[in-house]
Design a protein around this nucleic acid. Sequence first.
DNA 1: GTCTATAGAATGATAGAC
DNA 2: GTCTATCATTCTATAGAC
Lengths: 211, 211
Amino acid sequence: MANQSDTKTKILDSAEKLFAERGFSETSLRLITSKAEVNLASVNYHFGSKKELIRAVLARYMDVFMPAAAAAIIQVKQQKQCASLDDIFSSLVSPLLDLNTVRTEGTLIFLQLLGRGYIESQGHLRWFITTHYGQYLTQFVHAVAESAPEIPAAEMFWRLHFTLGTVVFTMASADALTEIAAADFEEHNDIEAVIRKVIPYLSAGVSAPVG
Amino acid sequence: MANQSDTKTKILDSAEKLFAERGFSETSLRLITSKAEVNLASVNYHFGSKKELIRAVLARYMDVFMPAAAAAIIQVKQQKQCASLDDIFSSLVSPLLDLNTVRTEGTLIFLQLLGRGYIESQGHLRWFITTHYGQYLTQFVHAVAESAPEIPAAEMFWRLHFTLGTVVFTMASADALTEIAAADFEEHNDIEAVIRKVIPYLSAGVSAPVG
DNA sequence: GTCTATAGAATGATAGAC
DNA sequence: GTCTATCATTCTATAGAC
């Protein structure tokens, strides 16, 4: 009991980093436990299975981010009666960057995990996210729809998924991209700089004239 | 020798489908050969290894698509002296859809493979693409940059990667998304419809005012 | 709660007969 | 060029001692 949460946390810390970098199926429990310096069997003792470990890793971020994001959106809608798309997207920057204070590289890891989960999973993660955090997602969709009332709902459905794709893919390759940008353009971007770059792109895309 | 290309083709046909659906590492050689109704050992006989099979699958599409895309861009630039971003992106639609005539679901499979390759690979596929098809990529980047001269080169680098992310992510989840759209909005989209939907989003994003 | 040891299943790859 | 048989490795998961 003494070191329970210590071992559990060591596993989570080690796992989230490796999952974000290499993907879920490319990361073995052996790698996780050796980096965490705990015994292989402890994963199954504390989490039951690899699948449940994956969900626990994601939940630790979602439980922090989702309520914070919801509060930020409510706040921006109170301050401006007609919040723009840029306002809505920008309001998410603080909750995202606050994840860096919770854990080293928290923002990057969270977004990479989200991307991996969306693309890799055969459904169990998508199901986990929508059933556990569906209320927040609905709230976000409504806020965006309000800010771009000229876009029909069906079109908005597609554009929000385009947006998710842009963010998730960018974050999954963020390390490689910042490296190339540094070499080719002598730009030195951290995660916040990348987020700030992507927002104008997203806003313009979501509110583009309907073909 | 008699059935050489027959077996080789059966393997490629079976592999590309499975790779696109499930990803590379989630697809075993056993699954590929059993669906292709060939012997397990034939993969290593014809391709040498799983890695080389993956490259061969991608190359079969790239060798068709890349020259066609290059020709389409040259053509649109000849017809209009000031081709817009929309013109450039739209010129790629035909080469993409022509892949459907080469193979059933060719367009979707190609784009899904591209996305999987970009995200999953630890470098060998990215290296393969840039060394074998780098000339085409450079040409494409130049064409886009010409059509949006107000965007600085470094910013354009980022926006083109945002664009790539949007496209490959959308295609990787295209099946799920069209299903949801059909259920929720009674929209029935094929791959061409999805491509036509994404182009305005991309054009607006790439040419968005620089923050 | 943590450890060793191992079961049990799956994988990529290959040797060698035909 | 195709087959069977198998090797060597890796993986998740668990039983049982401490």
